[in-house]
């Protein structure tokens, strides 16, 4: 029965971290840490760029914050169930006589593979970059879409 419950619960199937996250929140409550107003610490894979993955009926959406990266510096590929995002963030050198007071922005290469939870239609992947945010829309494969079942 335990196994059945595990697999019946769509939330824990889709996001195994959701359960961990819930446990962590409860631990916070117990330890009196619940007043902490910090962000909901998401489980970052530690690979650049950090992404948010969402879905609706027909599509998956991957979003990443890539300020200062141009479209032609990005390479996005779809294979099987996964999407690969790679590229390089360049920071153009400034005037040589300038001296820095602060230098917090970073440049460098990155590459990340994101496995999607369901089958995708690799031919229908669209990517857009606006205001430094990359949005990739991935159509779900016909078989992976939820289907309305009519009761006769």
């Amino acid at each position: 029965m335990l196994i059945r419950r595990l697999f019946d619960n769509p939330a824990s199937y889709r996001n195994p971290f959701a359960e961990l996250d819930r446990m962590r929140r409860e631990m916070d409550l117990l330890s009196g840490n619940f007043l902490r107003t910090g962000p909901r610490h998401a489980f970052s894979a530690g690979v650049f760029p950090a992404i948010n993955l969402t879905e609706d009926k027909d599509k998956y959406y991957i979003r990443a914050e890539l300020p200062g990266v141009k479209g032609d510096e990005l390479d996005i590929q779809a294979t099987g169930k996964s999407i690969t995002i790679s590229g390089e963030r360049k920071i153009t050198p400034e005037d040589e006589t300038a001296h820095y007071h602060r230098r917090e922005r970073e440049a460098g290469r990155f590459s990340r593979i994101i496995e999607l939870p369901g089958e995708i239609d690799a031919d229908k992947v669209e990517a857009g970059l606006s205001n430094g945010i990359l949005t990739i829309q991935i159509s779900k494969a016909e078989a992976a879409r939820p289907r309305q079942i009519n009761i006769k």
């Binding site: 889709r14 998401a42 992404i51 993955l53 969402t54 879905e55 609706d56 998956y60």
Partner: peptide, 16 residues
């Protein structure tokens, strides 16, 4: 906000 109204989170690694 730029997420569609029907979108559900699967992975959230950064906040907006």
């Amino acid at each position: 906000p730029f997420e569609g109204p029907d979108e559900q989170d699967i992975i959230v690694e950064y906040e907006v």
